[in-house]
Write a protein that binds this DNA or RNA. Structure first.
Length: 178
DNA sequence: CCCTGATTCGC
DNA sequence: GCGAATCAGG
């Protein structure tokens, strides 16, 4: 991939906006985060103030809110927290969300299925262990992938794996020709 | 183990 | 100039 003027400009912009090298690499496409960092140095762009890891974000003050119903006292408060970073226009949004394994306390519908919350990842941001279940219309802007954590080397999270590998189980296979 | 940026050095 | 490998850290 060539460092065209456009790409260099985009690099400068995103870097100044505080995006990480890997995220910039993802947005540019076709380059690694190392390439981005190397380019940043060659351009003599100002490095990150404090080296090593995350730029200071107001994580403490930012979103850490209890979104769901109160837990039953019996359940251990197993709360999965996950840090989601995404670029929204010209702003980096870094928030910590809480995902509770138990959707409801006692009210359990017949089908006890926990629908995962999509992380809305772009194609370039998928990794080995993110769910690659596509969501939405690929031709539209808001197309994205589930992006939830997928166990082992599975291409999908637990929920979407069930969907993916469940051919005709739902109903009794009337026309079972296999 | 996931991630971050920084540096080096062969190409 | 480029970027993978490596280093150093959270």
């Amino acid at each position: 991939m060539n460092w065209t003027d456009e790409r260099v400009e985009k690099l400068k912009r995103l870097w100044s906006e505080g995006l990480s090298a890997s995220q910039i690499a993802a947005q540019l496409g076709g380059v690694s985060r190392n390439a981005v960092i190397g380019k940043v140095h060659r351009l003599c762009l100002p490095g990150r103030a404090k080296a090593g890891g995350t730029v200071a974000t107001g994580r403490a003050s930012a979103a850490k809110r209890t979104t769901s119903a109160p837990r039953a006292p019996n359940y251990a408060s197993r709360v999965t927290t996950r840090t989601v970073t995404r670029a929204v226009g010209a702003t980096m949004v870094k928030e910590e969300i809480e995902i509770e394994p138990y959707q409801e306390m006692e009210y359990r519908p017949a089908s006890n299925v926990v629908v995962p919350i999509s992380r809305r990842l772009a194609l370039t941001e998928l990794t080995e262990r993110t769910c690659k279940w596509p969501v939405g219309d690929p031709l539209k802007e808001d197309f994205h992938f589930c992006g939830c954590e997928s166990p082992d080397a599975s291409p999908y999270c637990g929920y979407h794996a069930k969907l993916a590998y469940q051919p005709v189980n739902e109903r009794r296979k009337v026309a079972a020709r296999v």
